[in-house]
Design a protein around this nucleic acid. Structure first.
Lengths: 235, 235
DNA sequence: ACATACCTGGAACGGCGTTCCATACTCTTA
DNA sequence: TAAGAGTATGGAACGCCGTTCCAGGTATGT
């Protein structure tokens, strides 16, 4: 890719490309065909140009996918309700999860430490909300990082596999088959799994995300209560 | 790949391949060159055979990488200390993190729901330890899943980016550059990040994993205390 | 009209995952 | 011992991919 990416001062062709257009088309293609279906040739075809032209606007495929994922994250952040009461962190996390769930390929590309605009915005909003909880200041960064890691990492774990699986079969029958396989395991070697097949069959991914998130947030308020900086120390 | 993969009843050549040998060589190659460096041609060359022969033992590259990651997970599980007191979950999680940290490419390939042997073993051990905490039985599955997601998802978030970054520059200078970029952001738009550059520069990834894990486990014991099934209800 | 900088798009390169298949090896059966 | 079957090999070939290269087009500034 050439050094500069700025547009010509004033003009340019009417049908000119831009990084935004290329990334937008990439998001559409990723939504339709998944990560393996995104190809510079196919993308160029949709944009009525050649593959080489895309490299003027985007360094390589890694950057293209990263930018596409950051755009998805931006849409998710735009959907976050105003943080009114004390539930800001939870609402933010849920909005990100739901946003990524609509574009499953993106989940595994939102990485830390954040470098792209919306990743930075997400981390900053988490940090700002953490700073309001009354936790001692020296713990803000570590806690914010933990929440960021949870939201991005666990979302990726939950959402990403669905891409591979969902293409072939629907979720219910996949869970049923998995549960059946668990049930056939040796109970001596797998005492927990063999008894958990019903729970596996009935579980909901989004609820799992929320359950873990609430554990984390409970731990946050619990540890906040037991610190010296707390305005209302126990007894 | 052909239908069957069983070895001949008794014999075979002295230099015969096997799925174990192929996966073992793949692990070595992944350790040396990372995921992009693993190639069927290169792998075949190391095993003194042709690329086509590998497909007799392994269905495709996805399966090969998944099996390699599961082998790494197996090594990590073998290193877990005996779960004596109440710290079993923490020790298990730490062992998995450290094991994956030694093979960074593997972190993002340990997925849920687990299907390969060591993924199943990990989930079962987490579930067994959760069942011992005194939590009501109907919450065991959800909590075990949350811990599993945390361990695998957050490990992947922390460890995987280091592959891309570490190849070019060392960690300290990467953090320094990132911190400097955060410092140049607009404080009005990024109030938290602009004040967190020092914390970013000094943070330790493993400590972050532990900090979040402890939050989660604190939440676990806190929510365990407040449930109806608890033998000692609050006041 | 000319020079310049930006941008395009098609051809070409090297490498990849995967398939195919002729061949070889070993054990079983006769 | 000879033949057959099943198992495993390895090299050639296929189609596709990311990426590079570059000759040309298109606008602006002089």
């Amino acid at each position: 890719m050439p050094r500069t990416r700025g547009r010509a001062p004033a003009g340019g062709r009417a049908d000119a490309l831009s990084p935004e257009i290329v990334v937008g088309a990439a998001v559409a293609l990723l939504d339709e065909r998944g990560e393996r279906g995104l190809t510079f040739r196919l993308l160029a075809e949709r944009l009525n140009t050649g593959a080489g032209a895309l490299y003027w606007h985007v360094a390589n495929k890694d950057e293209l996918v990263a930018l596409a994922a950051d755009q998805v994250l931006g849409q998710a952040l735009a959907a976050v309700p105003r943080p009114e009461n004390g539930t800001g962190l939870r609402a933010l996390a849920v909005a990100v999860f739901d946003g990524l769930d609509r574009h499953p390929w993106a989940a595994s590309h939102v990485t830390a430490p954040a470098s792209l605009p919306n990743g930075l915005r997400l981390f900053d909003r988490i940090g700002t909300l953490v700073a309001r909880t009354g936790l001692p200041a020296e713990r803000h960064f570590a806690v914010a990082t933990a929440v960021f890691y949870y939201v991005t990492g666990v979302s990726a774990q939950i959402i990403a596999p669905a891409v591979t699986v969902g293409a072939t079969t629907d979720r219910a029958s996949f869970l049923a088959r998995t549960a059946e396989r668990w049930g056939r395991l040796d109970p001596a070697a797998y005492p927990f799994l063999t008894g958990a097949t019903a729970a596996l069959r009935d579980h909901d991914d989004r609820d799992q995300f929320l359950a873990g998130l609430d554990l984390l947030l409970d731990g946050l308020s619990a540890s906040g209560r037991s610190t010296a900086a707390d305005p209302r120390p126990p007894t």
